[in-house]
Write a protein that binds this DNA or RNA. Structure first.
Lengths: 201, 201, 201, 201
DNA sequence: GGCTAATCGAGACGGTACGTCTGGTCTTTGC
DNA sequence: GCAAAGACCAGACGTACCGTCTCGATTAGCC
């Protein structure tokens, strides 16, 4: 009993429409916010029928996720690993400061918040988001931290997955709840305290 | 000539209706999730006119916030400070383990996620949420950490506001993005690493 | 089992409020039309609680009927019989021309139309309207026509109730459906043809 | 820059929905009366979205007018002229008796009263109603009366438009205000008196 | 001249329907 | 032979009024 509906033929898909939809989604998210973003508005802005969106994406969150991934790919351009100068503290500060800047940049803020909000409430989208965007980022930390452990600069008994969360968790917390301003100084403090906690015994 | 609309008279407010609304909001959030939660359904479940909700709350998120605050007040019952046995590590583990349990409990999970999701996208609600729910909790950490600093158990140069975020940020991160299971062991690890970072020099 | 609800004590009724309500009803009917007329607006305009209206009238139509009666009483001022100069045709033309003028006057038009519209759909109000406003007017015709019959100026075999409707029916028809302009010339024609039909045989 | 809102494409209109809406409107008007008739109830009964009604009609009165026109078209079936047996009086009695029967029939009574009531208060609808329903009927009288004038059976100086109103005006008056029962005998009397008034001089 | 009871202005309440908006599906049409 | 355009069913939105109710704060009228 698997009549799930004939899936569309991906070969015939219009690349022009796909791009227009993703671009429209990003623009409208920036202009009016995610809550007020509607599929109809995206279709109208992209000059596309609504069905063309429903055919290829299950929800407006999925559209935005794809749009965000595309945005990230444009920007990533080779940042496929964390810097490794040998000085872990300096490297982490560099990275976390860049993260702070990104979280503070309006270009990323609106879609990021939208996706984060959806992810909290929607486990499916959360899984996709994690897999497509977050996990690759986090793996970079794991790699760098493991290198540091091997170099004797960090306690090898500490799980890098946990260490990494001590670094990004506090930043995410401030960004999300706006309890305090998100600054380079804050990033530095987080790195310093965490690294003291990771000192080899 | 600035009064746009006479505000309702709070003295004549029906306590019965207020309670019924908050209760219905919590129930329905648990049953169908926040996205599918509608003002009409709350009104119907509470046996109340829609206008009675619109009269006193600006949005369904605000209703849920009040409901959550009420829920918290029932549960708090004197937990108005963190334990202080003299052993900071043990005390923090106790508290963070309790937090883990709470975040894993279905009773709190649905409304918490709803409010967190809304807060990310909606700064006004976020401010209210922070003031009413979060900040009082965080202040308890500040108090306990300062006591530890004065007792010479923690580095007095570290801002307690930052230290606290190293504790709760990672938990929030995991809860939010479901990257890994949220366990007592994880809470313990976070406490241990963070406290090593706070050791008096 | 006749506990129908204690009726209000008419002695203690506030004359000031009654007048204000009737006046407000007429004003608002003229300003926004009967459809958009609301009890709340009447109460607000009259500076009166809604209950004061509901206590004394069963519906907004009833309020307007009272208002219209009051309006008519001011204007009637002794027109309690039709003219009788001995010339039936001249007398009827005088009266029907006056009726035409009244139906064309904005002051009476709005409330008249409102009451007529309600009367068509609402038999109870219709009965009240007929009894209070219409029937007394029609009786004047009956009296005058009977006098003409006795004076040998009209066929005594014709029921005056029918004759009268041949006079006012066509005017009402034009007023109601706006098929043609309602003029003195039209009134004259109606009188002339009808009276020819009433000539004694 | 005058186009405020793209009008819907009439070619793509669903005939099935249109019919269902008109039928539901008639049924509900008969069941609960026009005042209690709601757009929501029509949509529900017709199995149709509310928007499908709002898309094609400006008001519930307009829906009912269309429904009434459709009803009339079904019933008309070739009655596109008045009978002409050569005996004007007999012919008019036949027609007016039929009109009396129609006005007394429950099937036509409820929607007729609704439309008449709306027409009194709403000039736009009145014009539509007159054009679509009333005027064609009245023209039949004009034609028949002119034939009688040419045959020397009626005074050629009397405007047929006025004569016709002497016939239908009184019936309308009684129907509307329920002052007396509306019977065949009444119709006969009206015809007799009016025709006496139209005797060629 | 105080007491009592009803009416008063005010407006919150449980409801119903409004007319609009959007979600997703289905149908038509034009390229 | 798609895909745009958009009509369709469905149902929530936030608003406006309905008619009922509960509040003090005036009034009456009876003792």
């Amino acid at each position: 009993m698997a009549t799930t509906k004939t899936p569309p033929d991906a070969n015939r898909r219009s690349e022009r429409s796909r791009r227009a939809i993703l671009e429209a989604a990003l623009e409208l998210t920036g202009e009016t916010g995610y809550q007020r973003l509607t599929i109809e508005a995206i279709a109208a802005r992209a000059g596309v029928g609504k069905q063309t969106i429903y055919r290829w994406w299950p929800s407006k969150a999925a559209v935005l996720l794809d749009a965000f991934v595309a945005l990230g790919e444009d920007a990533a351009e080779g940042h496929h690993e964390l810097p490794d100068t040998g000085d872990l503290e300096a490297d982490l500060k560099t990275v976390l400061r860049a993260t702070v800047d990104e979280l503070n940049s309006p270009r990323y803020d609106a879609p990021s918040r939208a996706l984060a909000a959806e992810s909290i409430a929607n486990p499916d989208l959360c899984a996709q988001f994690t897999r497509a965007v977050l996990e690759p980022q986090l793996q970079l930390y794991v790699t760098r931290l493991r290198a540091a452990q091997e170099a004797g600069q960090a306690d090898p008994d500490v799980d890098p997955r946990i260490a990494l969360e001590l670094l990004v968790g506090p930043l995410a917390h401030r960004w999300m709840l706006r309890t305090q301003p998100l600054t380079h100084a804050y990033a530095d403090s987080v790195v310093e305290i965490t690294l003291r906690g990771l000192t080899p015994r």
